[in-house]
C-alpha cells in the first residue's frame, strides 16, 4: 500500500515516527508551515523555520525513504501579530523554491480584518506563482468560517480546483465540495474526526477530490492515521482502488498542479553506521 500524507508537521515528530510511517506505507508527505505553539516575535524566526522545511526536514525524510514537500505561508493566527506580518513581503522569494508545492496553511482563525487581508493577499500570491493553496478551516465557528472562506476564494484569482479546504467534517463537507474545491479531512485521536466517520463520509460523498491526512504535530496526534483510515476502508469493504485514490492519487493530483512534485522516492539512505541523525546527533 502506498500512502501520501498531504498534511503533517514532521518538524514536531521523531525519527521513530518516520520509521513507523515508512513501515506503514507512507512514501510521500507535505508539511505545511504553521503555528509552532509558541508565538514568534520577528520575521527572522519564520525564515529559519521555512529554511528548515526546505533543507533539514527533507533531508531527515529522505533518510527514511519518504519524499518531503512543503507549503509556506503566514498562518492565520500569527497574521494578527504586526511583528509577524512582514513575512508576507518575503514570501515571493520562498514561493519560487523547488519543493514548495502550495501556499499554506492560510485561512481563518478568529476571522479578523488582519486575517481577511492575509488570506486574500496569499491567495493572490498562489495565483501569481501558479501554486495551489492549502486553506485551513477554523476550529471554532467552523461552518460560518467555511462560508466566509469560500466567499474570499470566489473573489480571488485562484480557481477553486487549486484550493484544498482542510479540517472538514460532516457539517462542512457539503459546502466544501459544492464550492469546487478539494476537500481535506484531518483524522485525530479522540476529537474532531475519526477513521470510521471518515469511511462513512467517503461512502456518502464518494472518493473524488477527497484527501485524508493525519495533521500530526506537537499536540495529541497520530502520524499513522492515514494508514488507519486505509485499513478501515478495506475493512468496510471499499475496493483497494478507492484506497489508492484517496491516499495516493488524489494528493498527487492536487499538489501535482504545482508542477513541482518529485515522487521518485530515494531508498532509505546508505548512511546507517555513523549517521548523526540515527545516533541522535553529534
Amino acid at each position: 500500500m502506498r500512502i501520501f500524507d498531504p498534511h503533517i508537521h514532521m518538524t514536531s515528530r521523531t525519527t521513530d515516527d518516520y520509521q513507523a510511517m515508512y513501515d506503514a506505507g507512507v512514501r510521500a508527505l507535505v508539511e505545511p508551515s504553521f503555528w509552532l505553539g509558541q508565538p514568534r516575535t520577528s520575521p527572522a524566526s519564520f525564515f529559519d523555520y521555512f529554511d528548515a522545511l526546505l533543507g533539514w526536514e527533507p533531508f531527515r525524510a529522505s533518510q527514511y525513504g519518504i519524499a518531503h514537500h512543503c507549503t509556506l505561508a503566514l498562518n492565520p493566527k500569527e497574521a494578527n501579530d504586526p511583528r509577524c506580518t512582514p513575512v508576507l513581503d518575503a514570501l515571493p522569494r520562498y514561493l519560487v523554491k523547488d519543493s514548495v508545492v502550495a501556499v499554506g496553511e492560510i485561512g481563518y482563525d478568529s476571522m479578523t480584518p488582519a486575517e481577511d487581508h492575509a488570506l486574500a493577499a496569499q491567495l493572490q500570491l498562489a495565483a501569481d506563482h501558479g501554486l495551489p493553496a492549502l486553506v485551513h478551516t477554523p476550529h471554532r465557528d467552523k461552518l460560518a468560517g467555511l462560508h466566509r472562506t469560500i466567499d474570499v476564494i470566489r473573489e480571488s484569482n485562484l480557481p477553486p480546483e487549486f484550493v484544498l479546504l482542510d479540517h472538514l467534517n460532516e457539517t462542512t463537507v457539503k459546502a466544501a465540495t459544492d464550492s469546487g474545491c478539494w476537500a481535506g479531512f484531518s483524522i485525530y485521536p479522540d476529537t474532531k474526526m475519526d477513521e470510521d466517520r471518515m469511511v462513512t463520509i467517503l461512502r456518502n460523498h464518494g472518493t473524488e477530490k477527497i484527501l485524508v491526512n493525519s495533521a500530526a504535530d506537537w499536540g495529541k496526534s497520530d502520524p499513522l492515521k492515514t494508514r488507519k483510515v486505509a485499513d478501515a476502508m478495506l475493512k468496510a469493504g471499499c475496493p483497494e482502488d478507492d484506497v489508492d485514490q484517496v491516499l495516493w492519487r488524489n494528493p498527487v493530483a492536487f499538489y501535482g498542479q504545482s508542477g513541482r512534485l518529485h515522487l521518485d522516492t530515494p531508498a532509505p539512505d546508505a548512511l546507517h553506521e555513523g549517521n548523526s541523525i540515527l545516533r541522535g546527533g553529534e
Binding site: A90, R93, D98, R260
Partner: peptide, 25 residues
C-alpha cells in the same frame, strides 16, 4: 528597493531544477 528583492537571475537560480531537470540543477 526592498531587503527581500532579488535580481532576476537569482530567481532563475532557484528555478533551475524545474526548467533544466533536477539532475542538471
Amino acid at each position: 528597493a526592498s531587503p527581500y528583492a532579488s535580481p532576476p537571475w537569482e530567481l532563475r537560480y532557484a528555478a533551475a531544477g524545474r526548467h533544466c531537470g533536477p539532475a542538471h540543477a
